[in-house]
């Protein structure tokens, strides 16, 4: 029992550290290049795709769990993983695989955003 709790706590620490480190890397890049948030998101997602394709991201996901899947690189991981899994079944599934894997996230973003847009107004900011 104690061992299990320790393992869970360790997992949280690993998720925190890895996720935090990915965000900190992005922040360092922003600090030195003043890239906008949209560009940062695209670059990190592409980095996730590339690392997954090279087989380097899977170990990180196994190591840090949500620490590796929650940052936008995890989205890239999902896309690339879908493609790699689909490739085993043939070209059609290799091409449709990425979006199929990412469909939950994209659907959620679209549906929830539309709901929020119906519910909320933009409000003025003061700082």
């Amino acid at each position: 029992m104690t061992a299990e709790i320790v393992a869970i706590l360790l997992m949280y620490i690993k998720a925190f550290a890895v996720g935090g480190a990915i965000c900190m890397t992005a922040q360092i890049i922003i600090n030195f290049t003043s890239l906008t948030s949209g560009k940062i998101l695209v670059y990190f997602m592409l980095a996730g795709v590339a690392l997954t394709a090279l087989g380097l991201y899977q170990p990180l996901v196994e190591f840090a769990g949500a620490g590796a899947t929650v940052p936008i690189c995890g989205f890239g991981y999902l896309l690339a993983n879908g493609a790699i899994k689909g490739a085993e079944k043939g070209l059609f599934y290799a091409v449709s695989g990425p979006l199929t894997a990412a469909s939950a996230g994209v659907t959620a973003a679209v549906v929830f955003s539309l709901i929020m847009a119906l519910l909320f107004h933009s409000r003025p900011k003061r700082n």
Binding site: A53, A80, G82, L99, A101, A102, A117
Partner: peptide
């Protein structure tokens, strides 16, 4: 609302899908 929804995030979807397909084809 609908047309502007992906002004920022559209790029992520576009390049994500494109690079994902590329990976799929290469693996194939």
């Amino acid at each position: 609302t609908a047309a502007k929804m992906f002004t920022v995030a559209g790029a992520i979807i576009v390049y994500g899908v494109f690079s994902g397909v590329l990976v799929g084809i290469v693996y194939c």
